[in-house]
Design a protein around this nucleic acid. Sequence first.
DNA 1: GCTGTCTTACTCTAGACAGCATGTC
DNA 2: CTAGAGTAAGACAGC
Length: 754
Amino acid sequence: MNPADIPGLPPGVPEFLRESGIEALYPPQAEAVDAGITEGESLVASVPTASGKTLIAELAMLSSVERGGKALYVVPLRALASEKKAEFERWADFDVDVGISTGNYESSEEWLASRDIVVATSEKVDSLVRNGAPWIDDLTCVVADEVHLVDDPNRGPTLEVTLAKLRRINPDLQVIALSATVDNADEVADWLDAALVKSDWRPVDLRTGVHYGGAITFDDDSQREVPVGRGERPTAALVDDTLDEDGSSLVFVNSRRNAEAAARRLADVTADHLTDEERTELAALADDIEGVSDTETSDDLAAVVAKGAAFHHAGLAAEHRSLVEDAFRDRLLKVISATPTLAAGVNTPSRRVIVRDWRRYDGEFGGMKPLDVLEVHQMFGRAGRPGLDPYGEAVLLANDHDTMDELFERYVHADPEPVQSKLAREPAMRTHLLATISSGFARTRDGLLDFLDRTLYATQANDTTRLESVVDSTLDYLVANDFVDREGDEITATGLGHTVSRLYLDPMSAAEIVDGLREAEDPTPLGLYHLVCRTPDMYELYLKSGDRETYTELCYEREAEFLGRVPSEFEDVRFEEWLSALKTAKLLEDWTREVDEDRLTDRYGVGPGDIRGKVDTAEWLLGAAERLATDLELDCVVAVREAKKRVQYGVREELLDLAGVRNVGRKRARRLYEAGVESRADLREADKAVILGALRGRERTAERILENAGRRDPSMDDVRAEADADAGADGDDTTTDDRSRDTAGGQASLGDFE
DNA sequence: GCTGTCTTACTCTAGACAGCATGTC
DNA sequence: CTAGAGTAAGACAGC
């Protein structure tokens, strides 16, 4: 199909498409147009990654906007939201404005209302609906990207319920659902009253196969010799082989440690294939990466990057990730070894994809569990860059013939699993029933069931008794915790219930927090951190060997600080969870005692990205706790607010005022304080020479800070920095300080092995 | 005596959305 | 009680 033959587009778009090199639509795109996506028809497109799904969405959104409407593009990850926004901005010339709304990057309400296309995460959309954002009513088209994620036990129900709500708010809403190839796309289409386009077509040829005994055997029975030398690893041989053709590789492994170890080994392979120019560019990139964070992870990553390889997992700081992804896309990095994060994240295509580990540890399963076919296929889908690679190759690894046969059967020739609604799970029900009641979508039990009838769950379930019983027990729970009231048939949210729903808290988290705060007379920061860390909204840190003893001891030592009853050591599971939460809380406490990032990472066995994640979550939960305490008129409001601010800035109490000044973080605040500048007011009055000295002679920085502190004459012209008293020992003093404090308190820290 | 290879015992395990009000080194 | 790669440390051979 020729772009000019597409109906309903804004004038000029077909020409624009042709200028961007789109002479003819891909077959699935043409099918989608035939199904009427540019004329308001709904569609489920179940097609492989990189086969032009985005254009399908764009055509639908553009035509909807052309008819005077407004489109919403729903993504599963923040990183994807910014990626898509940047992509859609190419339509700016056609008077199509794009806005973005995620938890960390929020455009103002009025501004979003004026945008033609809004990109948001599913949770954010859910939240906007709960809070009654008026522009939601104006939507004419919604796109759900990666809709197969409705299968996800944690976040799937949010997407499912959100789509159901949007369709209820606007019955004429056009829905475009983009999915990986799944077994039961027809059920999804059924649910959404949409047409279905299902295709295996790909713009770049994809060959999948298994490497065993010195050769890859592909699905079409062809072979490619990739001999493995003595003492060489198959992965290295495969990466080397791709490099001989000037192609890049993506290696998927099953743990962070494996990703890092593999990158170290593969760096020796890539190092031999670099031009001098690449070496120079990589050295610069390595410098940038090292500068992102002062941690071992950062240094390790920089070391392999200098040689043309990288690792990628959720322990990396966000900047690390994007630097690595960008450099790989620019073909500067030759190989990335990654955990499954990368398969679900932003677009990072590669000539060859190597799925080294196809089993992953799963505690619930009690051992190594094979990856889902869908997951492996998502990894496969990263192979082959449209327009750049002649073909893509996806390879699994086998050590013996039996395994090779198994892999062919299990992954190469297998269809992905069907997606299955997880809505009937308790945690999902808790949250979504309360939200549904709170925002007035339903006022009775029948009303709730009627609403739930619009979900995928109802489409799939052949009898609704399970759903009814979960609804009933969940309602009981919500009533018992004073989130909803029941009078006869009438179900309404209480004030508390409304607040909880709008704060986007899991009701169980809210209940735990409310209980804890009610009994808190004079809560300590650790007590508050522990309270929020043990809610279901916080991922807990994993207890390592030795941690049990360490934190049991700490638990008794600081027993008085905990809010709520400490479970007995003999309630195994409960106590274990209590300790995990304590470990997380202790990480936060250390963070607010200004312990350095690198010490935190090795004390808690986490990466810089994990620290950021924990801090963010704690900040959010403490903010919610503050709001709950305010509404309930509890005395601890001030304590909670202070704990939140300390987590937010990562500082001790005395630095709160300083750290509140823009451009002053935990490090600068501490240096200023040591130099005698102890408050915002001091910043306005103190000797500039002292301030400049504390800021290590950075004039621009100092001027910006003074300006932000409200000083009348921020100029640093002619000011000479007073010598920094402890130059060279900076940063270390606080850590040493902290360590002696810990030891004095009798607490085991790293290096105490007794 | 040093170095590389093999053996063995032991360790550890993926991911990341959200409120609200403004801005790290 | 499940799996398998990584790792550190010791054993051993070869020079």
